[in-house]
Simulated scan of single mutants.
Amino acid sequence: MTEKIRVGISSCLLGEKVRYDGGHKLDRLIRDTLGHFLEFVPVCPEVELGLPTPRETLRLVGDPEHPRLVFSRSGKDITGPMEAWARKRVGELEAEQLCGFIFKSRSPSSGMERVKLYDRNGVPNKQGVGVFARVFMEHFPLLPVEEDGRLHDNRLRENFIECLFTFKRWREALARGLSRGNLVDFHTRHKLLLLAHSPETYRQMGKLVAAAGTLQPETLYTQYEALLMKGMRLKPTVKKHINVLQHLLGYFKNQLSADEKQEVLELIEHYRLGHVPLIVPITLINHYVRKYAQPYLKQQLYLNPHPLELQLRNHV
């Protein structure tokens, strides 16, 4: 993949001085590392709404299902204008062909989850969702989304990036046409990756693909996309990875020597015990895929789901 993946992002995370205090929240991991592979589309709800910088702080108050966005000192309620702007903005973002969004955590406008929400007594809890973030996620329910802080967790970061690249490949599959052949090809190449996320969802997707001839192409692809993103959102576990690694080993039963098989099994066990990261058994299996020119495994995206330079599997 040579084209960068377009991702929406809270502007302050790129170093733009749009915060209430006139500052920013530059995240170098996002800008300088992920930025090699992502093309960012910055959004700042508060500034784009027309609020000045610096400005009075905002907070969420009231009911978690219908929170109000108000200024902390004056109490002025700007929920209506923010929701109206957000609905207009997400409509504009449709033209950007985004594959995901990175929100600023804890923001009353952009926080994805666990934003402080104040009750009638002024006591905060962490049940809030930022006003813009809520509108965005309702408008784009299938897009991968994450927050800046959570991206510093190795497993959450790996899962999010895997979702982004998968969604990008799905978009490319759609561009090739809604044929049964294109869907079968996509499904086949993603088989082991999907198994690592959700064996149950993969089985549901397999049944859908098998019944492709009985469905209209638009219906088939819509249902498949919903299952695809549902499955990819479920995070892989060590147990699920081991299941896939053992599945991979089965393709070499007539090619590997007893010692070679034992070496792979030992590395899988070391991974299970947490002594080595996932990249170690994956690297050895990739070696055998190339050595024995295993045609089916060469196309399996589980073995190379995202750029090696990101080193995501070095830490999971």
Rank of each mutant, 00 (worst) to 15 (best):
L69G: 04
P277G: 11
L26R: 15
Q294T: 01
D77Y: 05
H139D: 02
P54G: 05
E147T: 07
R180M: 07
K191T: 10
E309C: 06
L93W: 03
K298T: 02
G75F: 08
S107C: 08
D119L: 14
T2D: 12
R73A: 14
E48M: 03
T53L: 02
L220I: 09
E146K: 04
P64M: 14
E172W: 00
E162T: 14
S179N: 03
F252C: 01
K126I: 06
F140A: 04
A258T: 10
Y251Q: 05
Y288I: 03
R290F: 13
K17W: 01
K191W: 10
F167G: 00
I285N: 03
E56N: 07
L265V: 12
P144R: 03
R180Q: 13
E146I: 04
Q255D: 09
R87M: 10
I9Q: 03
D119W: 09
Q216R: 14
L256D: 06
V129R: 14
E269A: 13
R189S: 03
K191C: 05
E83V: 15
N182V: 01
L178V: 08
P217T: 05
E56I: 09
E65N: 14
L58P: 03
R55F: 13
L14S: 03
E56V: 11
E113W: 02
L284Q: 10
L117G: 05
R87C: 07
L29M: 14
H241I: 08
E147Y: 06
L98H: 01
A133N: 05
N304I: 02
Y292S: 02
A173R: 01
L208C: 06
A196K: 05
C44S: 07
K298N: 02
L228S: 07
G50N: 11
T79C: 09
F132R: 04
R28M: 12
V61G: 05
G35T: 05
L303C: 03
T188K: 09
R89T: 11
E65A: 15
S109Y: 01
H241W: 10
N254L: 08
T237V: 14
D63W: 11
N254V: 01
P141L: 14
I242E: 15
R155T: 12
L60T: 13
K253R: 13
L143R: 06
P108W: 12
K239R: 15
R233C: 02
Q246S: 06
P81Q: 11
H36V: 04
I102K: 02
H241F: 13
K191M: 07
E263D: 11
L13P: 06
M112R: 14
K4M: 07
L265C: 04
E94T: 04
E96S: 06
P277V: 11
E147I: 03
D185R: 12
L278A: 08
Q255N: 06
R189L: 01
D77I: 07
R55Q: 11
S74G: 10
E96I: 00
P64F: 13
R68P: 11
E48W: 04
V209S: 06
L303Y: 09
L178S: 11
V264F: 13
D185L: 12
L194R: 08
A211V: 00
S109D: 05
A173K: 00
